[in-house]
Design a protein around this nucleic acid. Structure first.
Lengths: 341, 341
DNA sequence: GTGAAAGCGCTAACAA
DNA sequence: TTGTTAGCGCTTTCAC
């Protein structure tokens, strides 16, 4: 029983059982032409009987290609998770496999990168706040790198992102259009897209004649930063009529903290997020947010990789997608009473 | 530049550069004894200059051991994510690597399993609702399998779980102790642990003299099932004073829907979850819940695997950990007014 | 302390 | 249509 585990059947075993050469078995398993229908069936039959399964390590070694795409992402970031899910089918379409390098507690970036490199990934797709260090590591290995939703791209790195500034503009214009004048932004502390979202917020406020109402609170892309921002606002006694959060997770914290404080959304305060990740679509959150089209981003990223790997592209590309505002139930006209806390 | 990618330096290249044999380079990189300090340094130096990096595929092939532990989990399940994070360091301690098989949209279980098997994982750790089919697949390969937090274990499969019944008991006793009599349970539809949580709820209600108040609503382990349950309760006009959800995600949906409906938690309704996953600990959720100690579960699972792989254990084990109630701010005494909707 | 040699399981070019 | 052969990059005896 244990011996079984140690010595799994090989192509040789299958070949021996059928009475053909090992090369022919290889042919059959690769789906390559050049084996008669009858032989093919007998090989497959024998393999099934033996419980044979190709050894990926041997394949990679021999092919000198892994067809692995390393993906570095943050387990706890819903937007990253959405992307990872979309990357799988996109990669498959080009005959590549996604290999996950999860970032999170108990897993630092260096180790994750090392492991992906040891696995002979042919390219890397970086999500979220992967550092420049990771990029450099790849670059040093001569691997194609694609950043998704990031702006810090180093030399020769492809980027797939949405127009964050424009997304922020859509959000703020929507709020201004509803009649809001007191609109606070919770910043993303330099995290992917945050600098441009902030800029979009500021510009749109200025163009709406609200330059003196610009107010940016520090934050990051976690729920707790949104919660902390709201607690500060409540403590300060000057609650705005609308809050534009740096991303959906932050907006979730904003929304939850407002509700737990007994406030009504959007009756008392409107809330807008960014990403349109899974959390925004929950029925009891139903967040007005800026959509990044995850499927298209994933496809664009895989295409960028394939262009380099299989079509010899050399120059860096930046693919910028259009954001869209998704209006749900967390935004409405501003409250009449300025003071409510 | 592209050629670089295709032909990465090998041990032979490093050996040639130093003027030693390839075997010696192998020694050095494995940290095996038998190379002089001086040689060791020269080898490492040369490797660094060349940008050499061991080829994992070749190592696995030659060693006939991968030291890979396959982990099948659901990207969107916070409890699974907590476990995955804890599994990484636990595996590392025994010299194993975690290989992630992510389940979710765009990724079905069969493919994920196939990939892990092709990667020559030496054992599988299954989280969440991985089907019996997956278990059977592993079993057929003679691989050790550990189920975490699952009960459906097949023949010869190890199980690590908490005492779900007892956990449910703690939750319900807490509510009864606060004075609640009208306590509803949202069921987990057969998902891991749910049958026993339900049983624990029912038994404790009976023992508390509340047999006629037992009320179980259908649900699963998602936010939306909790949201739907609350919508039903609100529509029915007979809101209980407490809701014991099947897990934290479900509780999140319960809580959010209550709050959006303008209700106060715990003033109007108390809410208890199960898992103590990351979401329960968010400051604006701060959910009273039943803790499963993720770190200990992860360690127990890895130990179970190592016992089989490295110490020849043959018989199946079931490791049952004690749950603990974590009282946070979603539970309090029941409201006085029975009707509030 | 170091080297030579034999594969791990597979692929791909070539011959038959 | 099928078989032969030469490795992919590494580990691991066994000599020296």
């Amino acid at each position: 029983m244990n011996g079984e585990r140690l010595t799994r059947p090989t192509m040789r075993d299958v070949a021996a059982r059928v009475g053909v050469s090992q090369a022919l078995v290889s042919l059959v398993f690769r789906g390559a032409p050049g084996a008669s229908r009858a032989t093919r069936d007998r090989v497959l039959q024998a393999a099934a009987e033996l419980g044979y399964r190709p050894n990926a390590a041997a394949q990679v070694l021999r092919r000198t290609r892994s067809r692995h795409l390393g993906v570095l992402f943050t387990l706890r970031q819903p937007f990253d998770v959405d992307l990872v899910e979309a990357l799988h089918p996109a990669a498959e379409r080009y005959g590549y496999h996604v290999v996950l390098g999860a970032l999170g507690a108990g897993r630092d970036e260096r180790r994750a990168v090392e492991e992906l490199l040891a696995n002979r990934c042919e390219a890397m797709i970086l999500l979220g706040p992967a550092t420049a260090a990771a990029q450099l590591a790849m670059a040093a290995e001569g691997l194609p790198v694609v950043d998704i939703a990031r702006r810090s791209a180093g030399e020769g790195v492809d980027v797939v992102r949405i127009a964050d500034e424009q997304g922020a503009r859509l959000a703020v214009e929507h709020l201004i259009g509803l009649g809001h004048r007191s609109i606070v932004h919770v910043d993303g502390d330099g995290l992917p897209g945050s600098v441009h979202r902030r800029r979009g917020y500021e510009q749109t406020m200025r163009q709406g004649g609200l330059a003196d109402r610009i107010r940016v609170l520090p934050g990051d892309h976690t729920e707790e930063s949104g919660a902390a921002a709201v607690r500060d606002l409540l403590a300060g006694g000057d609650l705005p009529t609308a809050i534009f959060a740096g991303n959906d997770r932050c907006a979730h914290g904003v929304l939850g903290t407002l509700l737990r404080a007994g406030l009504n959304v959007p009756g008392d305060v409107s809330v807008v997020g960014f990403d349109d990740s899974g959390v925004a679509r929950l029925s009891f959150i139903d967040l007005t947010t800026v959509r990044q089209e995850v499927t298209r981003m994933a496809e664009a990223a895989v295409e960028a990789v394939v262009e380099r790997l299989d079509r010899g592209r050399i120059d860096a590309r930046e693919i910028v997608l259009e954001p869209a505002l998704v209006i749900r139930s967390t935004t409405g006209v501003p409250r009449r009473t300025p003071e409510i806390v």
